[in-house]
Design a binder for these strands. Structure first.
Length: 158
DNA sequence: TAGGCCATCTGGTCCT
DNA sequence: AGGACCAGATGGCCTA
């Protein structure tokens, strides 16, 4: 299934960019009742995503995705300091150590960006004039995985 | 010019 | 003790 380099509806990209799909209620489905206005917006975006999918022949337009199955609840504050009641210990660090730590951090961020580049190659991209940002990449990957999961489930039923 | 995105530095915390 | 991880701060670049 070759979908790389395809064209992505700009509305889908807006959806990915603003992250509104993350606000979908758990177990959200197209058949469920729409109680909130935000759901209507998200619904429209998702329909457009499926339209896109069907147009390009890798799904039928009636496939539905349950984003709630991903467990995308809002996580509570998980900062380290809030989790630990430990007293702060001061760590003296020399300028050489700081310099070495900076280099390690740069390498770490570099490998993180390599992983993002790999992910960018895996998600379907559309006529998008600029490359996906990291947050867009993550959000689109979530949508894409959800979509593929639903597609798989549907195929298994048949 | 404001806002978004990113790279880099930095210090705090966790982990081995 | 020191490396890994994380988040905040800062500045540069780009685009609308």
């Amino acid at each position: 299934m070759e979908i790389q380099g395809q064209f992505l509806d700009s509305t889908v990209m807006d959806f990915v960019t603003d992250g509104s799909f993350l606000e979908l209620p758990l177990n959200f489905s197209a058949e469920s009742k729409q109680s909130e206005a935000t759901s209507l917006h998200s619904m429209d975006i998702r329909e457009r995503f499926y339209d896109f999918a069907s147009i390009h022949g890798f799904a039928d337009a009636e496939s539905k995705v349950s984003l709630g199955s991903l467990g995308m609840e809002n996580s509570p504050d998980c900062s380290m300091s809030s989790l630990t009641g430990r007293s702060k210990r001061k760590r003296v660090i020399t300028s050489n150590q700081r310099h070495a730590a900076n280099i390690r951090e740069r390498k770490r961020m570099f490998s993180l960006n390599e992983a993002f580049d790999d992910l960018r190659k895996k998600v379907p991209t559309f006529a998008y004039e600029k490359r996906l940002s990291r947050i867009e990449t993550l959000r689109l990957a979530i949508v894409y995985i959800s979509f593929m999961s639903e597609l798989l489930k549907k195929n298994e039923k048949q």
